[in-house]
Design a protein around this nucleic acid. Sequence first.
DNA 1: ATAAAGCTGTAACATATGTTACAACTATGT
DNA 2: ACATAGTTGTAACATATGTTACAGCTTTAT
Lengths: 228, 228
Amino acid sequence: MQEDHLKALLACHLFDGMQRSKVENLFSGEQCHLFRYNRGALIAFRGDVYTNLWILVEGRIAAEFQDFSGKVLKVETLKTSEAVASSILFAPENNLPVNLSAETDVVICSIPRPQVIRLLQQEERFLTNFLRDSGLRLTILAEKLRLVQFATITEKIAGYLLEQADTQGTDSPLLPLTKEALAEIFGVTRPSLSREFSQFCTRGILSQTGRQIHILKREKLEAVLEKN
Amino acid sequence: MQEDHLKALLACHLFDGMQRSKVENLFSGEQCHLFRYNRGALIAFRGDVYTNLWILVEGRIAAEFQDFSGKVLKVETLKTSEAVASSILFAPENNLPVNLSAETDVVICSIPRPQVIRLLQQEERFLTNFLRDSGLRLTILAEKLRLVQFATITEKIAGYLLEQADTQGTDSPLLPLTKEALAEIFGVTRPSLSREFSQFCTRGILSQTGRQIHILKREKLEAVLEKN
DNA sequence: ATAAAGCTGTAACATATGTTACAACTATGT
DNA sequence: ACATAGTTGTAACATATGTTACAGCTTTAT
């Protein structure tokens, strides 16, 4: 295994607090395999059986639902050093709940389930890390469901912009995504998203030039979220 | 602890394949407590911190999202002997993702997290059972999200009726829920659900008298799901 | 048997979002 | 510098679902 791939593995939160040597041992044998996918490739589909634990050692993967018609809802973006679908490894039927697609060129390290079970029993930290990861995924998914069901497009925009303003520490945040990608995350169509952005502008709450947003009336944005 | 509560505990899938005596030991000490709630009571809210593992030893609990306006989406119904929000016990912030409300009078057995961790390490079966349960919840939630996002009311009805016909082994299934409860599960309003049921009737695909449904043109129902 | 509470069907209307299409703009690589 | 591909804004229109209200039914409790 390449140096940088090993480094990415060691950085996986599943191994937090474990001795470096123990983790390296795990990958010295023949049990783990690397798989490569090109950018844009479909790695796995909803319903596929998932029996090895995959850890992403290079690139970015999108976890998403896809309709017959091509309509998409992105659930998560998995980045280098993250584990893929950890909870599904032990679910009753092991069916992946989402499609996985390569957003960039991707390298995955695959660990057989028996090894994972052994590690869970022998290493308390691995156990708690694993459970924590499972819990986090459930939390993310639940929040996604809540947003999809209860938030209007306007509310999603308001929430997202306030969050961005917060993390970027400015009232003029730059969208880290294209509006198209944002529409996908929100689970709405691009023209609909665009229309609502425009509405905010005509109401004088925002101004925008492409991805550069200026929040002009923060209090109005906040009011949207309080369901005035 | 009462006889029937102990029995319900032992029937919890988390203890599948474990020695009865070991489980009983767990509950003989002073570490576990019982809590009671009356029918209709709100047991916990989304965001509440969840630090003890709860197992339902009597009654039924609804896990649901609730809007400001009172709009509701039921995610799951937890029945006697089921564990509550197992994955959240180890999630980063331990915040419950849903509201929990008592559909009947309810008794809950509460097990402190340290004991759960001990059990996870000492009993392989408990570990795999626990992981399986976590996985199942994620699967259920993901499926819920997919339905909410991609299925129209018509499709939800078609899917549900075919499923009911299947499990009840007849083309004249009896709805196990009121239409009101069904609307809640589908995350739609009751009049909307009612309207679509009526449409099916006028199209000659169904006939209904209250909860008694008759599927007249099964192939049309199936066609709805195939997104004609 | 009666009253009360809950469930169901229906209707007119409101509204959020999707669909399709096109033109203008922006980045990118050659 | 240019050509190409990707991104964005916009418009007219279609549609699924929500909202509110009411009347007729069931079921349940007294």
